[in-house]
């Protein structure tokens, strides 16, 4: 009997707490598979955020450090610089990375820190119950924008991959999603490329994943993926944003 597919050894054998259809579990798995395929599980150090993925360190099989809200890039900076030969990555949501941690991610990218950031953009604060994020689309409803986000009140959503790509220290940025198998395969290739560039010491690498939050979007998982492709992928175009 041969195994065609099984849970990655880059994940611990524990159930995850994410809601049905949430993209977090899929992205965790892709990172885990890349770590397993590149034989990095025993060396890698994950920096986890505050938000829904606050427990990521209990799911990844590698060592992990829980950072304060938004500070993962600062934590990762010290971890990578003191352990330059080991793979280090931050896993951050949009509230964590684009709002409270905006300074930390911009300066890590500016310095060209040799770690990888996996940015989960689901256009909402998930853990706290659906408040408006910097990435919430215009017109999209949130508990702190019940009539939908307006430009006048909250400005236009932030395209983080493009913003960071203006910085010389960033060598690779790609925006992906995991709504179906072709997109998921592309997302995994992007994560792998980011890790490869990190291990080659090229500079800061960034993968933005457009992610579904069916619970806080008020949709079923399939409908959420459809909405993601119709609305999010229109404002946040998929593909390589920068590659040096």
């Amino acid at each position: 009997m041969t195994t065609i597919y099984r849970k990655s050894k880059g994940l611990q054998d524990v159930p995850m707490h994410y809601c049905p259809g949430c993209s977090h579990g899929i992205v965790h798995k892709l990172i885990a598979e890349v770590m397993e395929e590149m034989d990095l599980i025993q060396q890698a150090i994950a920096i986890c955020p505050v938000g829904c993925s606050v427990f990521a360190g209990s799911y990844f099989a590698c060592d992990a450090i829980e950072a304060a809200h938004g500070r993962a890039p600062a934590v990762a900076t010290a971890v990578k610089r003191t352990h330059p030969n080991q793979p280090v990555f931050t896993y951050q949501g949009d509230g964590d990375l684009a709002s409270i941690g905006a300074a930390e991610i911009v300066h890590a990218a500016m310095r060209g820190e040799h770690f990888t950031t996996i940015f989960i953009n689901n256009a909402i604060y998930g853990m706290t119950g659906g408040q408006m994020a910097p990435t919430t689309l215009l017109g999209q409803r949130a508990t702190t924008a019940p009539g939908g986000r307006t430009k006048e009140q909250a400005g236009c959503p932030m395209r983080v991959a493009e913003l960071l790509s203006t910085l010389e220290g960033l060598v690779y940025a790609e925006r992906v999603c995991v709504v179906d198998i072709p997109h998921l395969n592309q997302a995994k290739r992007a994560i792998r490329k980011a890790f490869e560039k990190q291990m080659a010491g090229e500079g800061f690498t960034f993968v933005e994943v457009l992610a579904a939050c069916p619970t806080n979007w008020g949709m079923d998982p399939i409908g959420a993926n459809r909405w993601l492709m119709e609305h999010m992928a229109e404002y946040y175009p998929l593909g390589v944003v920068k590659e040096v």
């Binding site: 950072a67 304060a68 600062a74 900076t77 010290a78 610089r81 003191t82 300074a103 930390e104």
Partner: peptide
């Protein structure tokens, strides 16, 4: 050792947190 001029005191203490978390005197 490692010296970083951080972008803020917030980032600086969180760098200490990171270095300490992986066993380095910081």
């Amino acid at each position: 050792g490692v010296f970083v001029q951080a972008e803020s005191e917030l980032a600086a203490i969180n760098m200490v947190y990171g270095a300490a978390a992986c066993g380095v005197r910081a």
